[in-house]
């Protein structure tokens, strides 16, 4: 069976858990930005955690099923509409819903957050590229972006849907950070300064990085490090002194020093922060990273 895309909002991409092991060839990892939301959507429709879902930025997606299937929408809460020939009514967020043959699922505009996830029983079954169905928006490795007219093949369902799921809500709050590999390139109090005042999410944030406006973080060293490997969640500080948090489509190597690292468990929030919203960092309590 297939899903026929009738309309999209600003950006819809296919995402799974990403394309790992190819950073040395210059390939970004990609994958869903809000991992807990994508995993929940997959659980609700009975998929394995690595099934591909649709990542929908700011709603606006409308698609028609050419055969009945379970769907679930998670992440940024959106008004949902399932319309067929005889019935039309609103459906629930974060719950498995049956989409009958010929019916259309439409996502409105999120009331909060940015990215919603649509899972379908059997998973979005576009051909994998280099072992993953994720679309990377830095170099556009992976399936093409989903547009009006795209027909998305759907895999064979493997498990039963779980209409009710009561996941532990992901912890919302300040992003927990530890010192990064180049923290010694900054003034001693740079990490404290990062955590002392809120930053504002900038409008040019995307899947590559969360760009922030706020107090600059002065460097002790003014030269640039030669380009080196970068990790997910790296807080990179370009010469402007205002930090960028590297997200799933980050370049595998980068030339600005990394002051801090955001705890991976907190990164989902970066997928949902809207431009203009405040963001706080906090030093992670507990054991510092072991020095090998």
């Amino acid at each position: 069976m297939s899903l026929h895309v009738l309309a999209t909002g600003p950006l819809v991409t296919v995402q799974d858990r990403g394309r790992l092991g190819l950073a040395h060839l210059g390939v970004p990892r990609a994958g869903a930005l809000d991992v807990p939301a994508a995993e929940l959507a997959n659980r609700l429709v009975g998929n394995a955690a690595d099934a591909a879902v649709l990542e929908v930025l700011l709603g606006g997606l409308s698609l028609r099923a050419d055969a009945g299937c379970w769907v679930a929408v998670t992440g940024a809460p959106v008004p949902l509409d399932i319309a067929g020939s005889a019935r039309a009514h609103a459906r629930a967020h974060a719950r498995a819903e049956w989409l009958a043959t010929g019916e259309t699922l439409t996502l409105g505009t999120p009331t909060s957050g940015l990215r919603s996830y649509v899972a379908v029983s059997g998973g979005v079954d576009v051909p994998p590229v280099l072992g993953s169905r994720s679309t990377d928006t830095l170099a556009w490795v992976g399936p093409p972006r989903v547009e009006s007219g795209t027909v998305l093949p759907v895999g064979r369902p493997r498990g039963a849907p779980r209409p009710l799921d009561t996941p532990r809500a992901p912890r919302r709050g300040a992003l927990r950070v530890t010192a990064g590999p180049r923290a010694d390139w900054f003034d001693d109090d740079a990490l404290d300064r990062l955590c002392a005042t809120p930053y504002v999410v900038s409008a040019d944030s995307d899947r590559i990085g969360l760009r922030l406006d706020g107090p600059a973080l002065p460097r002790r060293r003014t030269d640039e490090p030669v380009s080196e490997g970068m990790v997910l969640g790296a807080v990179q500080v370009p010469p402007s002194g205002v930090p960028v948090v590297f997200l799933a489509d980050h370049p595998p190597t980068g030339g600005y020093p990394v002051l801090a690292l955001v705890d991976e468990a907190d990164l989902w929030q970066c997928a949902q922060l809207r431009p203009g919203e405040d963001l706080r960092f906090t030093r992670r309590r507990g054991s510092p990273a072991a020095t090998p």
Binding site: A23, H24, V226, S227, E228, V231, T253, A289, A290, P292
Partner: peptide, 22 residues
């Protein structure tokens, strides 16, 4: 998971035991 050489470094990412690797 990743072994990423660069101009003056190698990044090892996705390492289950950093101390053992060191």
């Amino acid at each position: 998971v990743e072994v990423v050489p660069a101009a003056e470094s190698v990044l090892f990412d996705g390492v289950p035991d950093v101390e053992a690797l060191g």
